[in-house]
Design a binder for these strands. Structure first.
Lengths: 113, 113
DNA sequence: TCCATGTTTCAAGAATCGTTGAAATGGGTC
DNA sequence: GACCCATTTCAACGATTCTTGAAACATGGA
């Protein structure tokens, strides 16, 4: 039996794994900075100092978890952060994982629930 | 040269790595549920269905990143979540990584900045 | 001291992950 | 078609991580 919780948990584990790498975390920050416009794969690669194949490998890993989306436009592939997916991860950490513990919320400058 | 940002980033990568494992994520949730009282290592092990050595390995990994703290009391070792550390990670994701993007905050039921 | 309990350490092996460079693919221009 | 540019795929290799069971360590009680 596979409960909703198990699925959520597996998804969270995958997302955390995606963020548990310096190259990927830097890529994500680049893409966040780029906003809704997104960035071409090659530009991300240059920005983080990764070879094309390395960049492709890590961008694919980010896309695999749904944290970023990709879209081909002519020759280039544009990657774009899925802000809702990141929000979902933060929500998981805050609500499901930490039960909205006031002390956690306080650390983020958030009002208690 | 090692900037503050690099240190922060390295710390975040380590924390995400700690959460990127089913056993450890379950342990963390157990410990959050246990609150300030914490839980003995053996109880955590039973709760997540891990052998003593496996539990010790993963609890040590969590402690290594500072997400949990340990304290020996008599024969037992009590593990306790460091709520501030988790809050710090959420804050990193929300502020440093996502620049407080309104769309991310909205997904967590947070007011825009 | 001897024994029982709780936890950590260790070594060995399997599995997963990340890097590299070369080759392949997709798509535009001449 | 021939050519170029952007990206992905692939195979090989090294590095890291996880699991397992046995042994060691720490502590308290008989």
């Amino acid at each position: 039996m596979d409960t909703t919780q198990d699925t959520q948990e597996a998804h969270a584990v995958a997302a955390f794994h995606a963020l548990a790498n310096e190259t990927r975390l830097r890529m994500l920050r680049c893409l966040v900075a780029a906003g809704r416009e997104g960035m071409a794969a090659g530009d991300v690669a240059r920005a983080v100092g990764a070879s094309p194949s390395r960049a492709s490998f890590h961008l694919a890993a980010l896309a695999e978890t749904g944290l970023v989306l990709s879209e081909r436009a002519a020759r280039q592939v544009t990657y774009r952060v899925d802000f809702a997916a990141i929000g979902g991860l933060v929500a998981y950490l805050l609500h499901d994982c930490c039960g909205n513990a006031p002390e956690v919320r306080r650390c983020c400058g958030l009002p208690a629930c």
